[in-house]
Every structure is written in structure tokens, then in C-alpha cells.
Write a protein that binds this DNA or RNA. Structure first.
Lengths: 218, 218
DNA sequence: TTATTAATTTTGGTATACCTAAAAGATAAT
DNA sequence: ATTATCTTTTAGGTATACCAAAATTAATAA
């Protein structure tokens, strides 16, 4: 199996199983990898033989420790490159993902560690996603997008993923600064609009805006 | 045909035809690409169909203008990355080639142009090879191989055409870095060995080594 | 010029990574 | 529990990028 193919499968399995439950089903993989379910079956059988996954027919798949290790190193490369492209090379956050999809397959640890060092060995990328260290260790965070918040309650604004003037002005207007305390009052089921209280005033946040706000549960 | 395959063929054809004559023969390609002559025949037939090369059976191959354009852009990417790795990321010039072999296939012009700008749009890479600009233009020079030098006198080392670790280490040992001043003391008629002075020390250069050193008369 | 050698091409074949359509298996709804 | 539905697997097939061995073509030497 080609290295790039292996890496794309493992990375995708990792991403799907960390967000959701532990086991990944074929259809999810087929969607994310943009290939047919039949091809997924075939690919998983091979990855099972290579001992990167435990694939149980008609049930689901999870990573072995070898698979997990490789997946983590791809995730590290991807997030380090995204951060480097954005912070050091001046790319916008909307541009970095696509380029990092290619760069993540360059296999040279010294290179990634060098980039990481230049960035100050960050543990999170500005999406709030954790960057595994050189040994694959991840700092657990409870950062989420505001749009992913399911419960009412208190949160703290930790970052934004959109740096447009329009968006920043909107935040400023409502005193939504980094570190601000946010209390979710309600989430509109119909369009996921969020009503919250910030510095005693009520603010309505569209789902689009909520997508761009990183918060921490407090 | 996969993009990476196309790029590797065209880059190799470009490198072989610029060093030597205009037409490239299959065996040279088979060697450089580490594939069998039979595969080269097949590959060239496809590249001909794609109009990247003019391939004349049992005679030889040359790039079309489309092929040349693509080749030049790969060469640009390769040399920009080499320069960036060496100058900005602190890699040794014996390390950069291998990494650039992978990085050269990342297709994002904005990225390459950004790196180039950071480097001050250099016209030569750390090996002394010219870097095509964004439009594919190369700075022409009056560089010659050291082995072609006929007279005693002063020269400046501008590049090398062999990127093996062994050769680069040899150069380093004698402080033969790009830009170094070289004074030819004598050329042995029998075997074309060259004796020269570099940073006040006498160094003997075999004709094989001299073949790989690009110098400029000063 | 003819024989010898070397390079190239053809032929027939492999492995990878996909596919579609049909069959089998699991899940949910009544 | 049984159908209807949705998911997964199997079966059979394609295109790419390689290969070795045989056949052909070109170059060289006698």
C-alpha cells in the first residue's frame, strides 16, 4: 500500500474516532476520503493485514497503537504546517488547510521539529485543535467552537478563527474580547442561533459567527 | 498519468538536456529515474500524447514548450525550497536536496512566490544553480565547469552539479563553499588533475571532481 | 559488408487503488 | 417477527506504473 494512502486512511480514522465514538464505520470513511464504500472495505482489509487497524467485518474499525502513532504524526505535521503557513508565511486561515493536506505527507521529522521550534512548540493551533508533540502526546483541551456548545452555561472566549475586519468589529461592539466571560442563555433549534450574555448585555450570535469563536467550558 | 510521475519525467529530461545536448536518450532517463528502459519507452509515449515531449522512436526525446514550462516550474520549486531550507531553516546543503525532492511537488504558486520573496527573490540556489523566476526565466551566466578551465588564474566557485553527500562533504572539508575564491596553480597534463589554492591552502582536485564544479572567471 | 554488441521496443504480466452492480448482512419500523 | 431500508461486502473490471524476457532496431568493429 502506498504510504500516502495509508496516511490518509489513518488520519481520517483518527479524526472520526476522536470526535465521535471509538469505532469508525465504513460509510463515514467513504465520505471523508471521497471513495466508494467498496474501496473502503478493500483498504481496511489491507490496513488490518499491516496491523495499523483492527477491522471487524460489518461492525467497525479502530486504530491499533501502531496506527495511532502514525495517525498522530500526520496530525502533528498537518497542524504544524497550518500554523507555520498562517503565522510565519502570512496565509489566511481559509487557505492553509488545503496546502497542509499536501505538506503533511513530507516525511522528515527534523523539518517538522524545526518548524515547531520556530513557532515556540505550540500545543494548540489557533482553531483550538491540539498539536501532538514529537512523541505523539497531546495536551487535552476543552476548547470547542461556540457552535459546538450543546448546553447552556458559562464559557470563556479563547480565540477566533476569522480575522476579517467586519467580524472583529462585530466582536468589539459587543465587548466580546479574548478572555471575556460568556453565558449561553439558549440555542435556537431552527437555525442554531445562540443567545448569550456578555458583560451583562444580551447578544445574539448567528451560527456562522459561532463557527468562528473558540470557547472553553468554565 | 499521475501528476508526480509527469513532473519527475519532465524535470529529469530538462536536467539531462540542459547539461548535455538537446535530445535525451532512454537509457539516461532509466538511470536517473531508477526504472527499466521498458518503462521509459512507455512513459515517453504517454508524455508525447500529452504533448509535453516530442518523442521520436529509437532516436530521442526533447521537451515541447508546454513540457519545458512545467519542467521549469518544478526546477523553480525545487531550488526555492532548497534555498529556504538552507537559509531560513538551518539545514546543511547536503541535506536539502532530498527534502526538496518531495517538496517540489507541492503545487501552490503563492507558497513558492512567498518563500522566494522572503529569500529576496534569489537567482541562484545554495548549490549555485540558477533559479527560474515565476515566469520561467533563468539568469544566463558565463559559468564553466572547473574541468573546462584552461588557464591558471582566479576563479570563483559558483555551483556544483553533483549533489551526493560524499561530494558535498569533500567540498566542505576544503572550505570549497559557494562564492569561494579559487586560484588554479596548475593542471596536470597526464590526468587533468587540478592543483588550486583555496583560503590559502593547496587542494588537489581530480578531473572527476572538477567535472562537477561550476566556476566563473574573475 | 557483415557480424557483433548495445539500445530500444514489444509482449505479456504484476500490484495498487480505484470503480459499479449485485449479493449478503445489519437495523429499524410496523 | 417480518418486511423494508440502509450498510457492507463480494465479484468482476479499469487505469496507472511498473517489471522481465524476447524481439527488433541502431551503432560499431572486423
Amino acid at each position: 500500500m502506498r504510504q500516502e494512502t495509508i496516511e490518509n486512511y489513518l488520519k481520517t480514522i483518527y479524526n472520526l474516532s476522536s470526535n465521535n465514538s471509538t469505532v469508525v464505520v465504513n460509510q463515514q470513511l467513504a465520505n471523508k476520503l471521497n471513495i466508494s464504500p467498496a474501496s473502503v472495505t478493500e483498504g481496511l482489509r489491507k490496513l488490518h493485514e499491516l496491523k495499523f487497524v483492527v477491522y471487524e467485518k460489518s461492525y467497525g474499525t479502530r486504530l491499533t497503537s501502531a496506527g495511532s502513532k502514525l495517525a498522530l504524526s500526520i496530525v502533528r505535521r498537518h497542524r504544524i504546517w497550518e500554523t507555520y503557513l498562517a503565522k510565519e508565511l502570512g496565509f489566511g486561515w481559509d487557505e492553509v488547510h488545503e496546502i497542509a493536506e499536501e505538506l503533511e505527507h513530507i516525511k522528515n521529522d527534523k523539518l517538522i521539529n524545526k518548524l515547531s521550534a520556530i513557532l515556540g512548540n505550540p500545543m494548540f493551533d489557533p482553531h483550538g485543535d491540539p498539536i501532538p508533540d514529537a512523541k505523539g502526546k497531546i495536551k487535552k483541551s476543552n476548547f470547542i467552537k461556540l457552535s459546538e456548545a450543546k448546553a447552556k452555561g458559562n464559557y470563556c472566549l479563547m480565540g477566533v478563527t476569522d480575522h476579517s475586519v467586519a467580524f472583529l468589529k462585530f466582536l468589539e461592539k459587543h465587548q466580546l474580547i479574548i478572555g471575556a466571560n460568556i453565558e449561553i442563555k439558549g440555542i435556537e433549534e431552527f437555525d442554531n442561533t445562540i443567545v448569550l450574555i456578555c458583560t451583562k448585555k444580551e447578544v445574539t450570535i448567528s451560527s456562522k459567527a459561532a463557527e468562528c469563536m473558540i470557547v472553553e467550558t468554565v
